[in-house]
């Protein structure tokens, strides 16, 4: 059985995995799940608390909060996951190149990465959004860039570690070329830790996306995102607290689930020691 499935055997991992599957499935099947549209306003119905008709209540425009939460999952998850995928790709290329070629390239990459890794992601993202402009694409690119440093570091460290292993020496003595060793031996072996940490980073990216949404920079209305919903809700805390509470819980529970499932996956893949070095 492959590791992602085995992770379900852990009680916490299984529960977390189920939640994640539920959220993703709900996001994908959103139009089938709810009788309401996410963007049709019904102003007389604004600020309704939870009821049989609106399970989580309505927002300031009388829209069903649960519907928006489910559609919001679409935005938040797809933006975060896409951003992290871009980030992982760029990070792996940079990290592998730095580790493999060494010399000034390695020094330059390490310097840039160390520095930008030390900057809070939220600042990097805010500056990038200022350059690119607000909206889903801007936020996606900003998040991607903010996390490149992390994956570059990790990939570089993995390749550096593997470079000295005997099986690499063996491949080299058998006359394998640079590209062959890098793509057939090093990168596949470095992949597992990178992918797991990419998964954990997706959790952080969801929070970052929500934070950018809080600053009004994410998906533009009426498209819902968890951050955007909380941003609107922050002005209504005493009038309709549910508008901010539920998206916040959705973020927290999903990120906890990602972490727990990721943790179970780490145990199953037995890569804890390889990740730790990069804390």
């Amino acid at each position: 059985m492959i590791a992602p499935l085995r992770a379900f055997r852990h009680p916490q991992g299984g529960l977390a995995g189920c939640w994640l599957i539920l959220v993703i499935a709900a996001a994908l099947a959103a139009p089938l799940l709810t009788p309401y549209a996410y963007d049709v306003q019904n102003l007389p119905q604004a600020y309704q608390p939870a009821s049989a008709r609106h399970w989580l209540g309505t927002d300031e425009f009388g829209r069903d909060l649960l519907t928006r939460l489910i559609y919001g999952a679409r935005t938040s998850l797809s933006v975060s996951a896409t951003a992290i995928s871009i980030s992982v790709l760029c990070g792996m290329v940079l990290g592998a190149a730095a580790a493999w070629f060494g010399g000034w390239l390695d020094r330059a990459v390490t310097m840039v990465v160390d520095l930008s890794w030390s900057f809070p992601e939220i600042l990097i993202a805010l500056i990038l959004v200022a350059i690119i402009g607000p909206g889903t694409t801007g936020v996606m690119i900003a998040i991607a860039v903010a996390y490149i440093a992390q994956f570059t570091r990790l990939t570089r460290a993995q390749i550096m570690m593997l470079k000295g292993e005997t099986f690499i020496e063996a491949a080299r003595s058998l006359g394998a070329g640079n590209a062959h060793i890098l793509f057939r031996h090093l990168l596949p072996n470095a992949l597992a830790p990178v992918l797991v940490s990419a998964m954990l980073a997706t959790g952080d990216a969801i929070i970052l996306e929500a934070t950018l949404g809080f600053f009004g920079l994410g998906a533009q209305p009426p498209v819902p995102s968890w951050g955007g919903m909380m941003s609107a809700g922050s002005a209504l805390v005493f009038k309709a607290p549910w508008v901010i509470v539920f998206p916040g819980l959705a973020v927290a529970v999903t990120v906890v689930a990602i972490n727990l499932y990721g943790d179970a996956l780490i145990t199953e893949l037995d890569i804890r020691s390889r990740l730790r070095r990069e804390a």
Partner: peptide, 8 residues
């Protein structure tokens, strides 16, 4: 908030 209503 007002802009979203105008949009609708």
């Amino acid at each position: 908030r007002l802009t979203e209503v105008v949009q609708a």
